[in-house]
């Protein structure tokens, strides 16, 4: 089946190539680079341990200071939308070729290149923070590369007991006495894969993000770079929830579904009134 699709795709491509190859020499497709800029407000985050003097310090709207030692998150289900509304999905059912872990301590992970995007004018991007439930099964046989990438010792994005991926993993320190904060999110949905009607329990921490591009990305003669800003100030001071770490509001250690959604909604939006969460488009370079 896969093969057949590939052949069909190849065939379609070759026809497309042939049909426009003599009019001009603009390529039929080009790369698009997604560049992730991780900030507190306008300041790019520098990580650091408890006593670090170089780590970027942030203060929440409730006056709680905090900084991070580790920040990772999974991006998948990427779709680019053309000005006429045509949606170009990018390997959305293939985690090996369509999903990535952004890891702030690994500079090369901050750029994710989408290969052979059809030429055209694009004015919107959609992607997921986390992994859709039907793919979120730690299926090492189908997606060995992504499984390995997420599972590396210095990445630790397997949520073992939930047999799924961690969607975000944030380690850091808060308050003036640098108490530990540790926030992990992931889905705990259970049921038969591909049959949502059987999802009878658990929390879906996957979030759909939709961002309009301030200027069109022109794919073809150029290979645009779209810079996506992830503003982690929203973690505690988000559009949906204002969170105070400690007793009463939210525990600083989120390793289970309990209390997790507060953070998920801030980072990835609540799925209804907020579909951007902490993300925005910083720039489009053609």
């Amino acid at each position: 089946m896969k093969n057949f699709k590939n052949i069909l795709l190849l065939f379609t491509f070759s026809i497309a190539m042939l049909s426009c190859s003599d009019s001009d020499d603009a390529p039929v497709a080009n790369d698009v680079t997604l560049k992730f800029l991780n900030t507190f407000g306008d300041e790019t985050i520098v990580l650091g341990d408890a006593t670090s003097s170089t780590a970027t310090e942030n203060t929440s709207s409730e006056g709680q200071v905090h900084h991070f030692a580790e920040v990772k998150y999974v991006i998948s289900n990427i779709r680019l939308i053309q000005v006429d509304g045509t949606e170009i999905p990018y390997n959305i059912n293939d985690l090996d070729n369509g999903a990535t872990v952004v890891n702030l301590s690994n500079p090369s992970s901050l750029n994710y290149v989408l290969n052979t995007i059809p030429s055209g004018e694009y004015n919107q991007i959609k992607f997921g923070l986390g992994v859709r439930s039907n793919l979120n099964t730690l299926d090492q046989v189908s997606f060995p590369s992504f499984y390995a990438l997420a599972g590396e010792n210095d990445t630790e994005m397997h949520w073992e007991w939930g047999t799924g991926y961690r969607f975000t993993k944030i380690e850091g320190f808060y308050d003036t006495d640098d108490k530990t904060l540790s926030i992990h999110t992931g889905s705990t949905v259970e049921g038969t894969i591909d049959d949502e009607s059987t999802y009878t329990q658990g929390v879906d921490a996957y979030r759909e993000i939709a961002l309009d591009l301030p200027t069109n990305a022109t794919v073809g003669s150029s290979a645009p770079t779209i810079t996506i800003k992830a503003d982690f100030d929203m973690l505690l001071s988000g559009a949906t929830n204002t969170i105070i770490l400690g007793e009463g509001n939210a525990t600083p250690s989120i390793h289970t579904a309990a209390n997790m959604v507060l953070f998920v909604d801030n980072l990835g939006g609540n799925g209804t009134s907020d579909t951007t969460g902490m993300f925005s488009i910083e720039s489009v370079e053609n």
Binding site: S182, T188, G202, T256, A257, A258
Partner: peptide, 17 residues
């Protein structure tokens, strides 16, 4: 252990804590 929340680990519902 911060990994323990009982049934709430799955449901996210603090009534199951």
């Amino acid at each position: 252990d911060s990994n323990e929340a009982g049934r709430a680990r799955v449901t996210g519902n603090m009534e199951d804590y």
